[in-house]
Design a protein around this nucleic acid. Structure first.
Lengths: 197, 197
DNA sequence: CAAGAATCATACTGATTAGTATGATTTTGT
DNA sequence: ACAAAATCATACTAATCAGTATGATTCTTG
């Protein structure tokens, strides 16, 4: 019964997947609907059957992208050694945010946020807001902080210190540099909140 | 003698000024040469007499933009009260980086850095690199740090914590929130480097 | 004032591209 | 098998826009 639904869903995904690649490498304005159709191995007509316009395809694609992220580093918070949990989360967090995958998405959002502000909402809710909420809980339960939000945000901000350069086209730091930066920032956090053992 | 040179220079600036406005509000790809010419109150031909192509106009305009920035907060470092110097610098730094002027420029750079990496070099040299060098000197001389770079970068990263949201279209924080954030981050820095008095 | 440069107004070329139209072919549920 | 829906291939429309062409007008300088 649901066979046709399933097939439609597969096709829908194939189109969004192709759209994601093209949008990432070209940005919204320069992305070409003919090319998206070609890469999805589908006719342009079919693309328009699933998505009524370029902008709506873009929005759907953004949501689609958000779904597959960020479990890369959340898992480290389950480590029973609190200090280790923080250090390992930090490394994963920095790695993820410096990955080409994430940076391309971020560039896209920055570039288009002015013209379509509603687009960024989906990103925030599956991204920073979710991460922030989980981190806050960790800071509260495991570090015993009654006001976890401020230090949590300062910490994540420190962790993102390397991003601007990469975002603007500088060479990506090595794994070793990332590791060291994550450690430095985390030690700085622990010093700031006077965390013992 | 130099009268004609002077006039040419004025016209050159008028064109770049119009180009700056249009590039900021439209981005590079959507910016329209006809509109730039119109806003500069000049013929498109004249634009092309001064700048041989859209991309070269863009590069020149970026450099032009960079020239007029950032003295907003550097001056605070001259305050003889070290703690006050840091707090006031921090507030100015955050204010500047959350200003619409700076954010629009930053968005532009992020969006175009992929296609024209050389463009960002001018920005770095008049922006972050210069600020970083001066701050490093301050951290070394006034805070007595032998390794000033790491804490300096962590601090500026913390100061920029509010930027992502605004960059992606969220409401700009109030002056009061900016003030408080700058203070929190700076206190965190001072705690981290155990600065006394 | 006269010569030459700069600018103007206007129009054109050529390329790209979002979105539509059409008619043929394939896939689906029954 | 058969009707209906989906997809295909191909072509077209209409709009935008970088960059060029042309011929008239206005400044600048000597």
């Amino acid at each position: 019964m649901g066979k046709i639904e399933e097939k439609k869903e597969r096709k829908r995904r194939a189109i969004m997947s192709a759209a994601r690649d093209v949008f990432r490498s070209e940005g919204f304005v320069l992305a070409n609907m003919d090319r998206i159709a070609a890469e999805a191995q589908v006719t342009k007509q079919t693309v328009y059957r699933y998505f009524p316009s370029k902008i709506e395809l873009f929005e759907a694609t953004l949501k689609f992208m958000g779904e597959s992220s960020e479990e890369h580093f959340m898992k480290h918070l389950e480590n029973p050694d609190t200090r280790k949990a923080l250090h390992e989360f930090a490394r994963g967090f920095v790695q993820f945010h410096l990955s080409e995958e994430h940076l391309e998405t971020f560039r896209l959002l920055v570039a288009e946020s002015g013209k379509a502000p509603e687009i960024t909402k989906a990103f925030f809710s599956v991204g920073p807001e979710d991460t922030g909420a989980r981190l806050s809980r960790f800071f509260s339960e495991r570090l015993g902080l009654s006001e976890p939000d401020k230090p949590m945000r300062l910490w994540t901000a420190m962790l993102l210190a390397l991003r601007d350069g990469v975002l603007l086209g500088r060479a990506r730091p090595t794994a070793r540099e990332i590791e060291e930066h994550a450690r430095t920032a985390t030690d700085f956090l622990l010093a700031g909140i006077s965390f013992e053992a």
